[in-house]
């Protein structure tokens, strides 16, 4: 789980993990309680209880503001089976998850590897630029991409007109066939730099001698990548991949919410945005929470499978 931790102050050379205190003192208990209690109360109140409520409320129908809450068992879930819009949102979520993960992780790894191995000049500058999308808010990114995709005066269509490629012009956010991929591009734009910078910093700590030695054996750069770079950053890759599932599901929601609102005609709806819509626009909170349960189960299951599929003994260098 944990990747490398920050280095402690360098003037200390004592062993690294002395968590145990030798002697328990009187009053320790009260001190521990005082320190823990505020954090635990907040955690339970605003994370544990709401999470439990997602599951509990999925068995009720509730229109929200009336106190009338009726237990309906699995009715909300059986309704999901007949809801074509839910299936569509699920399909969109899976599609975005697969495509964005493959593209972001693949490109991120590849670019980080060549940038680290080639020792480009001005690396710090590129790193600075690449990380910029990660500090921008999703609303800003949505606004930027809405401006790029704008039908008349957008950067994309404007450029195509300029190059006399009018035939390639599209209503990027208005065409049901391509709107999801327009969102996917924005997702990759947002996250690629983050993972590149992350992998670069973990690749930079691989000792150069390893590459020199295998270079003398006549290994090609591709081979070096698979036999040295990849195994040595595997733990890092594994952590990011496991968490990327959740963050991709989440990012697709916030981007869709800010950029397309799920439209046109529900063609870019994803699970979380559909849940949000059911809860607030439609005021069927119980049904919305049933969708929430599906999201929880799905993203947890995929994260679990990813982390199972990528498990290895940690490798030291």
């Amino acid at each position: 789980m944990a990747t490398t931790t920050s280095t402690p102050p360098s003037d200390i050379s004592a062993p690294a993990r002395p968590a145990r205190r030798s002697a328990r003192r009187r009053g320790d208990g009260r001190f521990v309680l005082a320190c823990l209690l505020p954090a635990l109360v907040l955690f339970v109140l605003f994370m544990v209880v709401p999470t439990v409520n997602v599951f509990r409320m999925s068995f009720y129908t509730w229109s929200g503001f009336s106190p009338d809450m009726r237990f309906v068992g699995f009715d909300n879930f059986t309704r999901l089976f007949e809801d074509a819009q839910f299936v569509r949102a699920f399909q969109n979520t899976v599609a975005l998850l697969v495509v964005v993960t493959v593209v972001t992780m693949g490109m991120g790894l590849f670019l980080a590897a060549i940038m680290t191995r080639q020792r480009l000049r001005g690396r710090n500058f590129y790193r600075f630029v690449l990380y910029v999308p990660n500090v921008l808010s999703v609303v800003v990114i949505a606004a930027i991409f809405s401006a790029i995709y704008d039908q008349q005066n957008g950067l994309l269509n404007g450029t195509l007109r300029l190059l006399s490629l009018d035939g390639l012009q599209q209503v990027w956010l208005g065409n049901q066939e391509i709107v999801l991929w327009s969102v996917a591009i924005a997702m990759v734009w947002q996250s690629l730099g983050y993972y590149m910078v992350l992998y670069m910093s973990s690749m930079a700590s691989i000792p150069e001698e390893l590459y020199e030695a295998s270079g003398l054996d006549g290994a090609s750069p591709t081979r070096q990548f698979f036999s040295i770079t990849l195994p040595l950053i595997w733990q890092n890759l594994r952590t990011t991949l496991t968490f990327f599932v959740m963050s991709a599901v989440n990012l697709s929601f916030v981007l869709v919410r800010a950029m397309t609102g799920g439209g046109p005609d529900g063609s870019s709806e994803v699970l979380l945005s559909y849940m949000y819509k059911q809860a607030y626009t439609n005021s069927s909170y119980g049904y919305g929470m049933a969708i929430g349960v599906v999201i929880f189960a799905f993203s947890f299951l995929v994260s679990l499978l990813v982390s199972r599929a990528t498990r290895r003994e940690p490798l030291q260098f």
Partner: peptide, 24 residues
Amino acid sequence: FIEVALLAGLFVNVNYIVVPIFLM
């Protein structure tokens, strides 16, 4: 137990639970 619970909390994104928080 607390450590495991907090670790599990890493997997709960706020946006998953914003509706129950609002209703609460």
